[in-house]
């Protein structure tokens, strides 16, 4: 049993495996970013990944949708193994949505176009259906009135919510969040976190890399602490914050709490 598996509650253990990483290793030239990561993310689980900068958290989730390629080990997403095979990559990418720290909205398209572009051209949905779904999602994230504006005219919090709606439009099974609130002003962080909480409550499988401890405590099913490319500790929020086992975890928590 891996460290990760040991922390599974009974409820979680019963669900199917959504993402399984076994012995994942990644190098950037000579620098090893991931040193053998083993983790299983269950269906409808919210997993929060913590750690100091350079610990490999972003690298890990970017490996999951092949924005980075891992050199050793295996990653299996919803039963499909992630290899160099383009077909597998395309399949996995249509199941996995990603929200970036820098939003990465398409600046030359309106908000509505940003959200409907992929459903129309990748899923081949008719335009009317895509637009209806997009408006529904924009309402869900709280900004339906901004549909005709350009990203440059929105605030950071609004842009990130559009980014979330854009990923949701592809109806993914898993959502990856790479430090979604790190580039936001404090007053906008709450509105984005509220959207993410609602998303978690609705049953989406989420992996969130973040420094927002309040969010982690409230919403996460499991917390993962990474350092120097390996997983140091995994636990439920109660156990993690109350009595962390590893020294490194205690040190990290003392620095940020």
């Amino acid at each position: 049993m891996t460290i990760a598996d040991r922390a599974l509650t009974e409820e979680l253990a019963g669900r199917k495996d959504m993402i399984v990483c076994r012995g994942v290793k990644k190098w950037f030239g000579d620098f090893q970013a991931l040193r053998g990561v083993d983790i299983t993310v269950k269906d409808r689980e919210v997993m929060v990944v913590l750690g100091p900068s350079g610990s490999g958290k972003s690298t890990l989730i970017r490996c999951i949708n092949r924005l980075e390629a891992h050199q050793e080990g295996s990653i299996v997403v919803d039963g499909v193994e992630l290899t160099n095979d383009l077909r597998n990559i395309e399949k996995i990418r249509s199941e996995v949505g990603m929200v970036f720290q820098q939003f990465n909205l398409f600046p030359h398209l309106t908000v509505l176009d940003n959200v409907t572009l992929a459903p129309i051209w990748v899923r081949k949905k008719p335009k009317a259906e895509a637009v209806a779904k997009a408006m529904e999602l924009l309402e869900r994230v709280g900004i339906p009135e901004q549909a005709a504006k350009f990203p440059g005219q929105l605030s950071g919090g609004q842009q990130q919510r559009v980014a979330i709606a854009r990923s949701l439009a592809m109806e993914p099974r898993v959502m990856l969040f790479d430090e979604p609130t790190s580039a936001l002003d404090p007053e906008m962080i709450k509105e984005v976190l509220d959207v993410m909480k609602e998303l978690a409550r609705s049953g989406m499988t989420m992996i969130v890399v973040t420094h927002e401890m309040g969010f982690a405590r409230e919403v996460a099913d499991r917390l993962v602490f990474m350092e120097s490319g390996e997983i140091v500790e995994v636990g439920t929020p109660e156990h993690f914050f109350a009595n962390p086992k590893e020294e490194r975890t205690k040190l990290f928590l003392s620095q940020i709490l």
Binding site: N65, L67, E90, V96, M98, F100, F106, W121, S167
Partner: peptide, 21 residues
């Protein structure tokens, strides 16, 4: 910016679609 390529890839756009749109 590289983020534009990453966002397009994450959404599943093909290379041609990403280039054109």
């Amino acid at each position: 910016r590289r983020g534009q390529y990453e966002a397009s890839d994450a959404l599943g756009l093909s290379t041609v679609q990403r280039t054109v749109f």
